[in-house]
Amino acid sequence: MKHIAIALLCLTAALVNSSQAQDAPQMDLPRVKLSAGMHLIDAQVAATIEQRSTGLMFRRDMPQSEGMLFVFEQAAVQCFWMKNTLMPLTAAFVANDGTIVNLADMKPRTTESHCSKEPVRYVLEMNQGWFGKKGIKAGFKLGGPPFETK
């Protein structure tokens, strides 16, 4: 009986820690430098299921030259929503070679789905309007280590 009580206590503690982690932004992700023509981007990299699931949720702001690069194991149609995201973002759906397939402006706190028009391995989220101000559209090629052929 004592072992069951200890197990339940451990499970409860794990669930509390897990729920607290889900209510706070993730800030300690690895970073990669990307380029969009002459513009540099300091992107946090969300490469695990947990990192991708949390993404930019619960953040109130993000510096203009920063973004988040979501990296998937293989190319597929990727869809994003903004349920717990507090700031407007634009998602760039990016092919293996760094070419932007399509862009989607996303409103905060919505469950509207925004999807790539074809299979992609990468999604780069930036503050809404960043791509437009820089004249970056579908077909533009991003540079950086993730897009270099090996």
Rank of each mutant, 00 (worst) to 15 (best):
I4E: 12
A7L: 14
L8V: 13
L9G: 15
T12R: 04
T12N: 10
A13F: 04
L15P: 01
V16R: 07
V16A: 13
S19Q: 14
A21T: 11
A21G: 13
Q22H: 08
D23M: 15
D23L: 15
V32K: 08
A36L: 01
L40V: 05
A43D: 02
V45S: 04
A46N: 08
I49Q: 15
I49A: 15
M57D: 04
Q64E: 12
S65H: 14
S65K: 11
S65C: 02
S65A: 12
E66W: 10
G67K: 01
M68H: 02
E73R: 13
E73I: 02
Q74F: 09
A76Y: 00
V77G: 00
Q78E: 13
C79F: 03
M82T: 09
K83L: 10
L89R: 04
T90I: 09
T90N: 07
A91Q: 07
G98Y: 02
T99K: 12
N102Q: 06
P108Y: 00
T111R: 11
E112F: 00
H114L: 09
S116L: 08
K117T: 13
K117I: 08
E118P: 01
V120A: 04
R121Q: 15
Y122Q: 06
N127C: 04
G129M: 09
W130S: 05
G132K: 14
G132C: 00
G132D: 14
K134R: 15
G135Y: 06
A138Y: 02
A138N: 09
K141E: 11
P146S: 06
